[in-house]
């Protein structure tokens, strides 16, 4: 079977995010970029399926030159090859533009299965996989926490997390699944894996080769207009209780936790 994983490179969860002076973006210098953590579950799932059922795994990623580092990590984990959507025209695409570009890269591959992370941890919109499935006319199952291949090898039973429980869904391939924490435990890229990844192909795909026009992607096509970014509000200082009897202080803290913070 042929499995495509859509990848995004995001700032590390521990990166300190600073806005640019014009409030139109974030300072990219000194940011540590990583593979979107949810995409790691997608990569791991693709590798496990390949190990069990054979086939080919392809990682597809859109972005500037720096994203090849995240792609190499996926190849080092064991993915077979990559397609890099690389063109200035793709910059500032909204979710629809991004999904169009990914669909253009994925369609000629005719995959049986497309795996994505449940969302990227930078924008947290979780829209691209859904739009991608629509564009490719495939069924989609989101937030998958468990997956069993069907006996025919052409379908899967997926458990997806919903409020208060799990929903079990059967889906026929080709399909788009988005992967959640708990689906698997992603492996580490090993040193031999990294050395092998050096020789694996990452095919660049520009706007012209993708068959899209400049109106389909980028800022021009974007239906979302970002007015400005605002920094997170400063956290208010904590309340300190002291110089009273401990039981009295505990009572006050519990009262505040219940009535003000509303966490107990």
């Amino acid at each position: 079977m042929k499995i495509v994983v859509c990848l995004k490179q995001t700032p590390d969860t521990e990166a300190t995010i600073k806005l640019t002076a014009d409030k139109q973006g974030i300072e990219e210098q000194n940011i540590k970029w990583v593979m979107n953590p949810y995409d790691e579950y997608a990569v791991e799932q693709a590798l496990r399926l390949k190990e069990k059922h054979g086939g080919e795994t392809v990682v597809v990623c859109m972005g500037p030159d720096r994203v090849t580092e995240a792609m190499r990590t996926a190849l080092a984990m064991g993915m077979d090859k990559g397609v890099h959507l690389k063109d200035d025209a793709f910059a500032h695409s909204d979710a629809t533009g991004t999904a169009k570009a990914l669909a253009a890269a994925i369609k000629p591959l005719s995959p049986d299965l497309i795996l994505c992370g449940r969302q990227a941890i930078d924008w947290d919109m979780a829209q691209v996989p859904a739009i991608l499935a629509e564009l490719l006319d495939m069924p989609q199952v989101t937030v998958v926490a468990k997956m069993e291949m069907g006996a025919d090898g052409k379908s899967a039973v997926c458990n997806r997390r919903i409020e208060g429980g799990e929903e079990v869904v059967e889906v026929k391939f080709p399909a788009v699944l988005t992967c959640d924490k708990g689906l698997n435990e992603p492996r580490y890229a090993s040193l031999p894996g990294i050395m092998k990844a050096k020789k694996k192909e990452i095919k660049p795909l520009g706007l012209a080769e993708s068959g899209l026009s400049a109106n389909d992607v980028g800022k021009a096509s974007s239906k979302v207009q970002i007015l400005e970014y605002l920094p997170l509000p400063e956290r208010p200082p904590g309340k300190v209780f002291k110089e009273q009897e401990t039981p009295d202080m505990v009572k006050q803290v519990v009262k505040l936790l219940r009535e003000e913070a509303k966490i107990i």
Binding site: V34, E69, R72, T73, Y188, M195, K198
Partner: peptide, 14 residues
């Protein structure tokens, strides 16, 4: 070089 960046990140993460 990119290969060593990947190695650094992989080792750091581990």
């Amino acid at each position: 070089p990119e290969e060593l960046k990947v190695i650094r990140e992989a080792t750091r993460k581990f």
